[in-house]
Design a binder for these strands. Structure first.
Length: 246
DNA sequence: CTGCCCACC
DNA sequence: GGTGGGCAG
């Protein structure tokens, strides 16, 4: 993890989602990275590693209504140059894994289309993508049903030492993270996950860590637009038991 | 069984 | 576009 920590020494913060009054601030790691606010999600694209640093979006219970079917049409991000990454995944043995899940985007044709932009894709071990990562996505949708509205950030852990695939040398992350914030109540709560890019039979609880710990690993500063006392409180410890799992 | 994740043709 | 597979609920 040391190399990962070193890589993210330089941190540039942005008021990305804060501008949308969503009380959530996500930083990026490099001035050269491209930040785009799509209709359904925001993305920080890392050109060096040819994938997103993170994607962030709010998911509401209303958006879980299924208006459209899965599109399955992978296309370059029209707003980000250098995202024509189809050739690199082909035959690589890795899935074109969604960071923002297509199943979270069934409320809108536009959102569904956006979820298949290659800026939202990252090389995932098929067993990881279709297994534990999918489980976390499904759990997140259940939590959205229960808590009405959640803020979600997902991304890879990127570093120079990663192996690469394709002519564009797309980095294959060893880990992926997800952070979820419930900001509905007077006492908001957050939970973070860090999972190896491999199949796993373990319970999701095994991959829980505090937001503070994830911030140390990624170099990102999550939720910095929240009032300081609340931010400190919810980031200090992830309470899996606080999130009812059904 | 369906839904979601896909690859491949 | 279609077909087929793994996996979880």
């Amino acid at each position: 993890m040391n190399r990962i920590l070193l890589y993210f020494v330089i941190i540039i913060s942005s008021n990305l989602l804060g501008q949308n009054s969503k009380n959530i601030e996500i930083p990026t790691s490099n001035k050269k990275d491209t930040i785009i606010n799509h209709f359904a999600y925001s993305v920080s694209y890392n050109h060096k590693f040819r994938q997103a640093n993170w994607v962030a979006y709010q998911l509401t219970k209303k958006e879980l209504i299924k208006i459209v079917d899965r599109a399955d049409k992978f296309i370059p991000d029209p707003l980000i140059k250098g995202t024509d990454n189809a050739i690199d995944y082909k035959g690589s043995g890795f899935d074109r894994g969604h960071l923002a899940p297509a199943a979270d985007m069934r409320f809108s044709e536009i959102a569904m289309k956006e979820s298949f932009y290659f800026s939202n894709m990252t090389p995932q071990n098929p067993s990881f993508n279709r297994g534990i990562w999918n489980s976390l996505e499904e759990q997140t949708r259940k939590w959205t049903e229960k808590y009405d509205s959640l803020y979600i950030v997902a991304g890879p852990i990127l570093s120079d030492s990663l192996s690469k695939i394709g002519i564009h040398q797309i980095a294959v992350p060893k880990y992926f993270f997800k952070v979820i914030l419930d900001n509905r109540h007077k006492h908001p709560k957050a939970i973070a996950f860090l999972i190896l890019n491999e199949g796993s039979k373990e319970d999701l609880q095994k991959f829980v860590l505090s937001v503070d710990e994830l911030e140390r690993i990624t170099g990102y500063n999550f939720f910095s637009l929240l009032p300081d006392d609340i931010e400190i409180q919810i980031e200090k410890k992830s309470c899996y038991e606080c999130w009812e799992n059904n």
